[in-house]
């Protein structure tokens, strides 16, 4: 039992680290330039020159995957950031106002956003503003907000009942100060775990949006679009569709394992229960 916890975390972190490293490395170096097309050298299998072969435009697959990692990770991180930046204050506010009008409003608003079909709204957003990585971020970020608001509120409510909060109240601290100084640090682990999960969902969402052509635009490589662009060639150049698929799976798997590991590791209550 005790041996399993680090293992999940270690495997998850290792997988995540590989892709984060690849994304960071792609900022300064890729084996080949992803902007340069070489139609004559297209659809090549793996070779010493192109470790993972080339795509239908003769671009180096490894380089494409590296830059694609950057796109996916950037979109997902910023979307999680938006969700946190909006959702956490709302959740804290609702918890501080437990049972009050603000609480009710925040929760109703949450239900309302949840009631909208996320994918349809994401498609509408890109129809209004045009498809781009930025609008994909916006769409994913909006739907992250109620998740963080709910988790924050739930966690914060539990902390509010504890004695040291009572002590802080007695010492005359305001609601805002208590929320920031005492509540937030105590729910940080909760938020990190949720953040990891939303991060992995963000990667999947970005892949889905790009797959239908609504995410990052060319020439910027993105895993979802690489998949979409190459799927008609799956029968004679399967690596084009299989590799980005595996990259998505590995990254999401890594993040989910990390999230699970972190939850077990950071939250002693849950550890006991398992």
């Amino acid at each position: 039992m005790t041996a399993r916890l680090p293992l999940t975390l270690v495997v998850g972190l290792a997988l995540t680290a590989v892709f984060v490293a690849a994304a960071l490395l792609s900022l300064v170096w890729t084996p080949h330039a992803v902007e340069s097309l070489n139609i004559a050298a297209r659809l090549q299998p793996a070779s010493a020159e192109h470790l993972l072969g080339t795509d239908h435009f003769g671009r180096d697959m490894l380089s494409m995957l590296m830059v694609g990692a950057r796109t996916s990770i950037a979109v997902a991180i910023v979307a999680v950031g938006i969700g946190m930046a909006l959702g956490v204050p709302l959740g804290l506010l609702a918890a501080a106002n437990h049972g009050g009008v603000i609480d009710d409003l925040v929760m109703r608003g949450n239900d309302l956003v949840f009631a909208f079909p996320a994918l349809v709204i994401a498609i509408l957003i890109t129809a209004v503003f045009g498809p781009s990585a930025f609008n994909a971020i916006l769409a994913i970020g909006i739907f992250n907000t109620p998740v963080f608001a709910r988790v924050t509120r739930g966690g914060a409510l539990a902390v509010w009942t504890q004695e040291f909060i009572l002590a802080a109240r007695v010492s005359g601290k305001g609601v805002v100060r208590i929320s920031l100084e005492h509540i937030l640090p105590n729910i940080a682990s909760l938020l990190i775990v949720q953040g990891t999960i939303q991060f992995s969902l963000g990667i999947l969402a970005e892949a889905g949006l790009s797959y239908v052509g609504l995410g990052a635009q060319p020439p910027l490589p993105s895993w979802g679009r690489m998949l979409a662009d190459s799927q008609t060639m799956i029968s004679f150049a399967p690596h084009l569709a299989v590799l980005p698929g595996l990259a998505i799976i590995a990254t999401v798997l890594g993040l989910n394992l990390t999230g699970d590991g972190l939850r077990d590791h950071l939250d002693p209550r849950l550890r006991r229960r398992r």
């Binding site: 698929g245 998505i248 799976i249 590995a250």
Partner: peptide
């Protein structure tokens, strides 16, 4: 199950079709 969650369903669908 972790793997199942990580697989994008459209990719899986594509493999099923093939």
């Amino acid at each position: 199950t972790q793997l199942g969650i990580a697989i994008p369903n459209f990719w899986f669908a594509m493999i099923l079709v093939v």
